[in-house]
Design a protein around this nucleic acid. Structure first.
Length: 154
DNA sequence: GCCAACGTTGGC
DNA sequence: GCCAACGTTGGC
């Protein structure tokens, strides 16, 4: 399985890249994805060792905050079973889970690439993130885009 | 807070 | 299966 690349959005007011860097093992459990397309990318596409662009959304300066890595297999997102969680799904059961989580480790923080800069590079004009109306919180990144962005981050 | 774009729900 | 109504995302 060749290494694949992903972009994952987090609201920094909730969990920022720095928060993950500061946490135990620099690793966080990615939970709360409640969109089927995004879920399918996690459940069916992600493997240990895949690269992740950690994106900050719904904040003052949206952009790519750092590089991360998938460090677990996908597993049922525990918050779906928790009635007290905002991510609770009454239709999900442990026997028939509906939503998927995965462990993500922060590996490198370089220069912050804000959205305006991302849009300024012709090399990135076809990024799914930048497509009109794109709202997915988890999406694939092309290897060429990944290499270009990693170079920019430094 | 606004609003465009997209996803989901539910009546029929 | 259609589609209107509603909810959410996320940049600005």
């Amino acid at each position: 399985m060749p290494k694949q690349y992903w972009l994952m959005k987090s609201e920094p007011d909730d969990i920022s890249f720095d928060d993950v860097l500061a946490s135990k093992g620099q690793t966080t459990s990615w939970y709360g994805v409640r969109n089927y397309q995004a879920r399918n990318f996690i459940r069916d596409g992600m493997h240990v060792g895949d690269g992740v662009l950690f994106y900050h959304s719904s904040c003052a300066v949206p952009g790519i905050a750092g590089i991360a890595e998938i460090v677990s297999a996908p597993y049922p997102d525990a918050t779906q079973f928790d009635p007290k969680s905002p991510y609770h799904d009454p239709k999900a059961t442990p026997e028939q889970p509906r939503w998927t989580g995965i462990d993500v480790k922060a590996v490198h923080k370089g220069r912050y690439l804000d959205l305006k800069e991302l849009r300024s590079h012709p090399e990135l004009e076809h990024m799914r993130l930048l497509a009109k109306g794109s709202r997915l919180s988890v999406m694939p990144v092309e290897p060429a885009e990944w290499r270009f962005i990693v170079k920019l981050i430094g």
